[in-house]
Design a protein around this nucleic acid. Structure first.
Lengths: 350, 350
DNA sequence: TTGTACGCGTTATCAA
DNA sequence: TTGATAACGCGTACAA
């Protein structure tokens, strides 16, 4: 072993202080609360800072200030457009406020997620963004014990002591189902993401069932398939559901990705969408607009959610403000994939 | 000001040491290099660590060890599937090695990117992942001066002193163009992402031009439109290109997103793809398989790139190994959007 | 407005 | 194998 990491020879606060002919305290103040320093010294110090290309040492700063200005985000995966969007917005707000983002993904695995959360804490995250409420309660105690503010996104229900910014998955899915029922659909099938560790997915199923019951239909009659998050899986599930006789007139999907797979499968089976079978999605990602027919789906304000989550977290950390629950509105986006059952219209849709 | 952030009352190394009846040094060793500690004390210390729910203080650790085990990734945007994939893989490898990822996005803005890079450094990143080579040379000096290893991804050309893991954008685009020319295409147009701060985009254009020249065609004749990264922009660009007479028989796109927009525009114009006009993409993201016709495109191993980038960075930081250039292979994925020109079974073109 | 001086929680060197 | 103890670089009462 030799020079190792000669990260040394970098100027320190003291170097700057000496060069500028002031104390380290003054340099520190100049950097952190400029208005406590007189115009003259301030500019002199700043000049020296630039001249020496000084940059504060992160560890030292964190140690002394007990704050890292770093926030963690633990999400299922970045490869899902809805989280990518949310994260991007989360990060932008953070940066706009001089903070930085740590990211970890859990692959929807609760054990990994817990690990990642602990890692975030160990890495000195000042606050943490989590997706959904579904996890071992112990982890919440852990976070509380360490006074780490948390904001939960993508779910707006069932959260009390924590900040959250989300929407009502159940209600949104229910409204879409109600609309379809109003159109005349009775035989409705559902393709869902795995509900085991996913409260959002579960809520969406529940919403549809509720709508069914409200319409006097038996929710238990609804064929339901759970599967992984991928186009291919949506495709396979759709094929399987189409074996039922009589066939469903509508296949609702827990998200747009599954719905895209369903649409493809329909084409492969020689079925016209929506003439032979209607399909709906959820999320309203770009994908929904690109396939044909374009998906009727539920629009979820992912970016807004990410941005608000960051603001909520920052408020808790910087202003020590209380946790706040925010519920955002969703709305149904009507496109071509949903039509009344058995409606073989000609393809001149708008 | 009041209690602020009572992040106190957390156990420290010293607390553990006292409780376990050993010195702080021993506790530290137990945690960081267990094999330097005897079996007996080790288990005793570990027990106390668990009992006290001790977790090392990040700032203190970073200050003393001069290392954060944190790596930064500065990318154009997470909302682009290719970067999301790469990042996900990058992060996974990092986690597998006990490290954590910081993320910042630049929105393709060089000034913002530079800022983010500096922030990463200020946040104590041990190494940094950058996309492409295109940036102010000064920033490289800055990084070198601070001994921060860098790995550049998405480009495999023109890098010498730094680690990189990428592929030959020019060559890949050239091969696809050559294939199309072989199919008989002569009037080829190109829709590119803005090339101004994007070496990948520029290389792809260059590759096509080169293929044209090789085939005895004049590269300057190729209509070229630069636009933003979005389906809508791809759509608009395509419409504009189709005003030319004679029309191009093939519109190549710098990426799959633009190509998806082009395909949509073709439909809107009543043009059949590929009978009336062929379209190609680049990247091979899921989108390419979902639209119809599915895109003939260039497959780029985004995940592999991200994973290798992490390994390269870790190697440089932990083993102080030398920068390494890695070039990955791409290949053409043949789907339905590219066919010989005028291959409409019957009917004449205007 | 500025300076002094201490403490923050670890790591790592050196002895024992 | 273990223990003292000196850095590490900065923030911040407190004093001037």
């Amino acid at each position: 072993m030799e020079p190792k990491s000669p990260k040394s020879d970098l100027p320190t606060l003291e170097d700057v202080a000496r060069a500028a002919g002031v104390s380290t305290a003054t340099v520190s103040r100049t950097l952190n609360s400029p208005d406590q320093v007189s115009e003259g010294t301030r500019s002199r110090v700043m000049a020296t800072v630039r001249a020496l290309r000084y940059s504060p040492n992160f560890g030292a700063r964190a140690l002394a200030a007990k704050r890292t200005n770093t926030y963690g985000a633990v999400i299922p995966t970045m490869e899902n457009a809805i989280f990518a969007r949310g994260l991007e917005a989360f990060q932008k707000v953070l940066v706009a406020n001089g903070a930085t983002m740590l990211v970890a993904s859990s692959s929807y695995d609760p054990a990994i997620e817990e690990d990642q959360i602990r890692t975030m804490v160990a890495r000195g995250a000042d606050g943490i963004l989590l997706i959904g409420t579904q996890r071992d309660p112990e982890i919440y105690d852990f976070l509380k014990e360490r006074h780490i503010p948390v904001v939960i996104a993508w779910t707006g229900t069932g959260v009390t002591a924590l900040s959250c910014v989300g929407f009502d998955n159940e209600d949104a899915a229910g409204k879409l189902a109600a609309k379809a029922i109003g159109l005349g659909h009775r035989r409705i099938a559902f393709i869902s993401a795995y509900t085991r560790n996913n409260d959002r997915a579960r809520d969406r199923v529940a919403g549809v069932r509720h709508a069914l019951a409200t319409a006097g239909l038996d929710p238990c009659d609804m064929p339901l398939l759970e599967t992984k998050y991928s186009i291919q899986c949506g495709r396979d599930a759709f094929v399987e559901l189409m074996h039922a006789r009589p066939r469903p007139t509508l296949v609702m999907c827990g998200n747009d990705v599954l719905a895209a797979g369903a649409v493809r499968a329909a084409h492969e089976l020689g079925l016209d969408v929506p003439a032979d079978v209607s399909i709906t999605g959820f999320d309203d990602i770009e994908l929904a607009t690109v396939i044909s027919p374009a998906l009727t789906t539920v629009h979820v304000p992912h970016r807004k959610m990410g941005g608000l989550a960051a603001e909520a977290l920052l408020a808790q950390v910087r202003d020590n403000s209380a946790p706040k629950q925010t519920t955002l509105e969703t709305h149904i986006v009507v496109r071509q994939s949903l039509a009344p059952p058995g409606s073989r219209t000609n393809e001149m849709a708008d």
